[in-house]
């Protein structure tokens, strides 16, 4: 199977609660879901965001939602203080999911 960018197989939305971000990855076609489950481990996602996560890389969690062909990644600590205290331009981390779609699967 050839390598493609995740953006060709799936779409994504990012939410925030406190300093935790959650990023959904949803297969456009249900037949691609097993490929996502295999390729997109919590470790792969943590590695993709290594610079932003720092010491929080080990805390990344993955939940599976097979009925809707989706994975949900939870990334505690990535918002560094949360939306109210963060110094970041995108304090909510709204744009994080778009960066994940550049990962190779």
């Amino acid at each position: 199977m050839s390598t493609v960018k995740l953006r060709e197989l799936a779409h994504s939305r990012t939410g925030d609660k406190g300093d935790t971000s959650n990023i959904s990855v949803i297969a456009f076609k249900s037949e691609d879901y097993p490929r996502l489950v295999h390729a997109l481990t919590a470790e792969r996602v943590a590695e993709h965001f290594a610079e932003l996560l720092g010491d929080d890389a080990l805390r990344v969690l993955r939940y599976e939602l097979p009925k809707v062909g989706a994975l949900n990644f939870v990334l505690p600590g990535i918002l560094k203080g949360g939306v109210t205290r963060s110094l970041a331009l995108d304090a909510h981390g709204k744009a994080l999911g778009a960066a994940l779609l550049d990962i190779d699967v």
């Binding site: 779409h11 994504s12 939305r13 939410g15 925030d16 609660k17 935790t20 959650n22 959904s24 949803i26 456009f28 969690l61 939940y63 939602l65 809707v68 062909g69 989706a70 949900n72 939870v74």
Partner: peptide
């Protein structure tokens, strides 16, 4: 569509169960 609904269902959710 099912895609907009799925994105919103998982929005700001941690453990879906």
């Amino acid at each position: 569509n099912t895609a907009t609904c799925t994105e919103q269902m998982i929005y700001e959710v941690h453990d879906p169960a």
